[in-house]
Each structure stands twice: as C-alpha cells, then as structure tokens.
Write a protein that binds this DNA or RNA. Structure first.
Lengths: 292, 292
DNA sequence: GTTCCGCATGAATCGATAG
DNA sequence: ACTATCGATTCATGCGGAA
C-alpha cells in the first residue's frame, strides 16, 4: 500500500480551498490558541477568535467525508481573572454551520506548566472536542482498548520479548494471536479522559501535544490507507504519526520554517515504509500509546 | 463554636428568597441534570434548562458574599447522539447576570459507570464550574495541598545549580526567599483536575457525588464557622460534610423524603460536635481527601 | 549494561510598572 | 482609565552523563 503525505505551504484559510469535497477521514488539529503563537497567525485576540475560525470550520466541513471526524484540541485562556468564552461560543456557532458536537474528551496533562497564583491552580487539562458531519461516523473502538487492572500489566511484563514483538506487529487489529486468547478477557474500552504528559523536552521538535495524542485518535477514527488532515501542521506531529501508522496525510502550515522541517522529516519515514522489513511497529515498539 | 444547619423544605426558586443578601461563603451544588429526576423538578428539558436555572442563579448571586464562591457540578447529557449545549449557554447567560466565570475544574471519575455504545466511550468526567461575584474572593490553597512528586525529595536535599542560577538571574540577591520556599516543603499545590472515585457502595443514599468532592471545595473556599449552601440538597452530602468540618450549612430540598432523611442524619452530627473531645479531625481522620 | 542523578524547560498567569 | 511589557512563581518529565 502506498502512503502519501501532501504538504501545503500557506494560510489554511486559502489552502483548504484546494482540497476536494468529502475526501478526509479524520481532521486532527490544534489551532493557535487566542493570543498564543503570535509569530505565526498573528495572535488572534480572544474576542475575534470565533470570527477568525468559522470560515476555516466551514472549509473543514466541506472536505470531511460524511463518515469522518473532526477532533479539535483547544483550551481557553484566562483574561482578567476569568476564563474566556470563545471556545463555547465556537461550538455553538459551528453547530449552526451544520457540525454535530458529538463529544468532548479531556486530555489530562500530568506535567502541566508550574506556577502559583493567589486565585487559581495550575491548568492541567485541555479540551479535545469531537465534531461530526453525520450521526453515522466510523469508529474503531477495539483499536484503542487498554489492559484492565494491575495484574494484567504485570503479566504482560513477564511475557518474553518474542511474544511482545509478535504482539506489537499487529497494529490496528489489537493484540497478537499468540497471547490474545487470555488477554482478550482483560481488555477494557477506555473512557473519554486521556492521560498523557506533554513532551516539553524534545529538542528536535517542540510540539504542542505529545505523539500519543494524535496516535490515539488516528487509531480510533481511521484505518490503514485513510487520510488524515491537519490544517495547522506546526511541527507536524499529526502528519508524521499518521504516516508511520500507514495513513495518508495532508498538512497545511503557514510558517515556512516549520513546513521545511516537516518535509525533511517525512521523507525518511516514507523510505522506511517502502522497505517491507522496516515497519513502524518493529522499529518503534515504544511508541505505543499509554492511556489509563 | 456553635455550628448550625438550616434545612428548608421546598422549591429553591421560592426558598432562596428567604435568605438574606451577602450571607453565604460557598455554594456547592449539583442541580438536577436535564431530563433527569423527573419526580422532583419535573424533568427539565435540555432546551428549557437555561431559562429554568437563570432565576435561581440570580438568587444565588444575591445571597453570596462578595468574597464567596459558587461551584456548580454539572455535565451535559447526550441527546440524539450529540452533547447538549445548555451548560455552555448557561455560563454565557450567567456572565450577563454579573457572574464571573473564574475556572472550570474537572472531576475525573475513576470508576465511572460501565457501558458500551457503538459511537461513544464511557463518560468519566464532570464539570465543576467556579463562579465568583468579585475578582477578590477567598481561597485557602494550603488546605488542599497534596504530597509532592518523588523528584522533589532528592532535590530538596541538595538544591541544583539551575535553581540557584534561575534564582540569581532574576532576583540578583542570591538565594534568599526563593530557596526558603523549597525548604521544609513536602507538599505541592494541586491542579484543576480532581481524581475521585464515585461511591458505588453507599447503601443508605445514592448521592450525586462522593463526599470527597464537596469536602475539597469546602476546604478550599471556606474556613471554620463559614456558611455553605446547597440549594439542591438531595441526600445532603454537602451539608453533612460541611457540618462535620465545622461549617454552618443551609440546605434546600423539594422532596420531603430526602429532607427528612438529611434532618435525621444531621442531628447526631451536631451532638457529636458539642462534645469537645469529639472533633472532626479526631473522630474521622480517614475522611481526608485523596486528590492526586 | 543498568540505575541513578543532575538538568533544562514548557499553549501559564498574576501584579507591578511603564507608555 | 486602558493596554503593553516584564519579572516572579514552580512541578513533572525525559535526556544524558556518571556511578
């Protein structure tokens, strides 16, 4: 199977128009938050945020397949001691465009930014808002099942390495055959709370979110050969992970430096995928998501 | 110190009018969620929820002290495959009444209700929305501190050079007050994500939330002798915990059976408090909150 | 080779100071 | 009065060098 990654350099308000209707299976993106990342999209003011995002949301609605899903990672900032309301207003307005607000997942960031203030604690969670075009969307729940209970974990630890390799060589289809007989009873469906630490220490690419985050949603909402879009590509975490998981990916980035960086990283990944010996699972077994 | 608990039997839309202005330090409540508890508040439909709640919110704004806090425990239900928007609309409308939306805490329910749906996972979190009347409200952060992570113990023994450098570069006067913050510190401030299991095995009453939840917020926003209000008392968890923590409490309940049940439970608590040997801390040391 | 330990830093937020 | 800039605060994580 040939996996493609298409990158666009430019403002997604324009670049999105180049994509055909009903062509995307999953949109996973983290737009610049209000007054954040001022160097790229010019620091959108909280009170202008909804107006700025709505035309983009309309394009996203057009390019998404009816069975597809849009996952929006966002969090409102504090202004003048209060949380801004632009995220809630955005959800209400996007519903008027025709989006269905299916669910809100919580990303719990265990290592949230430190600080002490007289009137508030550290903010350690972000929203992952799931939108759909249609009530009938595709969801592969089995792909993100997690081991149940502690004893299951210890037994997994005691498995031989060969068992682990065989296990992990079957991505998307759950666990490997040889242990599936007894592990099957001990898998549970996850919840709508996702525990992941931020990667604040990665020197190569300091991404807004850890790889595990797009990985989880790509597993849940797409299968191999599907197409993933990130209109605010940034350091390209979504696209790189999508490619490693054998999904086609489309990325749009306004900032040339980021664009070229991602381009450079995606080429080796593609060469790697062409070699049948080098699968994502064998070379990077440690990339498995840790969701509790 | 004499601790009182006043219970009102009736509809809080009427009963709240009996309370004086600016008299409450903390309102902690979990109102009937839309389309539930049909026997009491008549099963408020999601599309009528905001209209139903706003007059109550106005009364709450009136009775709350300017330094007080209102914590609203709520979660929107799924209607027709979509999350309802009434909670978001409520926040937006309450701000127009004069409420400040200070923060949104997440209650992560570790043992959420099991279940499986084709297009959705278990819902394991609820909103705890903090409203205030004024930017200057009272908050006793030290009361809810949690044990620090492991690294801190070793770091406290021999402060790293980084801390000294960071300190000196900013303060200039060497390690003075900054270091003293770290000495003798084995606790850290919590975040805005609260981990508590739901109480699934409480035989007497099926409360909307575990005792630890009101306990945490009572610790955080009140001191002994303050007054806590729950206008939707239900099984009285908030009031009973408040009394055990030596806070005055006011509860309003529309359903007589609940009202009498709470009344019966509160009397023994008050007798207990009159005996100087029986303090909350001595008799119930295990009630301390477990938040991670 | 493990394990241990030092180290840098992150979608943050507040209050004071300056224009 | 209202906005822009700046310093101070503080904890979990993963890396790399040391034991």
């Amino acid at each position: 199977m040939e996996i493609k990654s298409d990158l666009y350099l430019g403002d997604c308000r324009e670049e999105l128009k180049k994509l055909p209707d009903n062509s995307i299976d999953l949109i996973f993106t983290s737009p610049p938050y209000a007054d954040q990342r001022n160097n790229t999209y010019g620091g959108i003011r909280p009170d202008k945020y909804v107006d700025w995002f709505l035309p983009i949301a309309e394009q996203l609605l057009r390019v998404l397949k009816p069975t597809g899903t849009f996952v929006l990672n966002i969090k409102e900032k504090v202004v003048n001691g209060e949380r801004s309301t632009y995220v809630m207003e955005l959800i209400i307005e996007m519903r008027k465009q025709g989006w269905l607000w299916t669910e809100e997942f919580i990303w719990h960031k265990k290592n949230s930014y430190p600080g002490k203030w007289p009137n508030r604690f550290r903010d350690s969670w972000e929203r992952l808002i799931q939108f759909n075009k249609d009530k009938k969307f595709k969801m592969y729940q089995e792909a993100v099942m997690v081991p149940m209970g502690d004893w299951a974990k210890t037994r997994l630890k005691n498995l031989s390495n060969t068992d682990k390799i065989r296990d992990e060589s079957k991505v998307g289809s759950g666990f490997g055959k040889n242990i599936s007989n007894w592990i099957n009873r001990d898998k549970a469906y996850p919840t709508n709370v996702i525990h992941l630490a931020t990667e604040c220490n990665n020197k190569k690419h300091s991404a807004a979110f850890p790889e595990g985050l797009p990985e989880w949603f790509i597993k849940l909402f797409t299968k191999e050969g599907d197409t993933v879009l990130d209109p605010f590509m940034g350091s390209g975490t979504t696209n790189i992970i999508a490619n490693k998981m054998k999904r086609n990916s489309i990325g749009i980035e306004i900032f040339e430096e980021y664009y070229k960086m991602v381009e450079k990283e995606l080429i080796p990944v593609e060469l790697l995928l062409l070699d049948p010996k080098n699968t994502y699972e064998k070379t990077k077994p440690d990339r498995r998501i840790t969701v509790r």
